[in-house]
Simulated assay, not measured.
Amino acid sequence: MTQKTKAELEAEAKEPKAEKMHKIIIPSSAEFDGKEDVFLNCNGRRFQIQRDVEVEVPKIVINVLNDAVKTEQITDESGRITGTRDVRRYPFQTL
């Protein structure tokens, strides 16, 4: 068994490792920008995701989508606000 030289180890460390990709779909919605592409920025990496199209993304994109929430008001039958709830800003489906 041969040992790797210091230069070989440094070269391996610099090579980007292949990320595991995950298939998702972000559906269109009735919101004002619900038909537009979704733009994300994750640790300096930019992503533009088309809606209603199956795409492959790294795990970090799924984490950002899970963290992107908005607060909606809960109302009763008479229209009074009874509380709030957090929902995903960009609902998506993993395949």
Rank of each mutant, 00 (worst) to 15 (best):
S28K: 14
S28I: 08
S29D: 13
S29W: 02
S29H: 02
S29I: 06
S29R: 01
S29P: 13
A30P: 12
E31A: 11
E31G: 11
E31H: 05
E31L: 08
F32Y: 12
F32H: 13
F32W: 08
F32D: 12
D33G: 13
D33Y: 12
G34M: 12
G34P: 05
K35M: 06
K35T: 01
K35G: 03
K35A: 02
D37N: 04
D37Y: 01
V38D: 02
V38Y: 04
F39G: 01
F39I: 15
L40C: 15
L40M: 15
L40T: 14
N41W: 02
N41G: 04
N41R: 04
N41S: 12
C42Y: 05
C42K: 06
C42N: 10
C42L: 04
C42D: 04
N43K: 08
N43I: 00
N43S: 12
G44M: 07
G44I: 10
R45E: 14
R45K: 15
R45H: 14
R45T: 12
R46Q: 02
R46L: 01
R46P: 00
R46W: 05
F47W: 09
Q48V: 01
I49C: 01
I49M: 04
I49Q: 05
I49A: 05
Q50L: 01
Q50I: 00
Q50K: 05
R51E: 02
R51W: 01
D52E: 15
D52Y: 02
V53I: 03
E54K: 06
E54Y: 13
E54H: 09
E54L: 13
E54I: 13
V55M: 09
V55E: 09
V55K: 10
E56I: 07
E56L: 08
V57R: 01
P58N: 03
P58M: 07
K59N: 00
I60F: 07
I60P: 10
I60Q: 12
V61E: 00
I62N: 02
I62G: 05
I62R: 03
I62Y: 00
I62C: 09
N63R: 09
N63W: 03
N63V: 08
V64N: 04
V64E: 09
V64L: 06
L65W: 05
L65C: 09
N66A: 08
N66Y: 06
N66P: 08
D67C: 09
D67Q: 13
A68F: 02
V69H: 13
V69Q: 14
V69M: 14
V69E: 11
V69N: 14
K70T: 07
K70Y: 10
T71Y: 06
E72C: 15
E72N: 13
E72P: 06
I74S: 11
I74L: 15
T75E: 11
T75Q: 11
T75P: 04
D76L: 10
D76R: 11
D76C: 11
E77P: 15
E77W: 14
E77R: 15
S78T: 08
G79W: 09
G79S: 10
G79Y: 09
G79F: 06
R80M: 15
I81S: 07
I81E: 11
I81M: 11
T82Y: 07
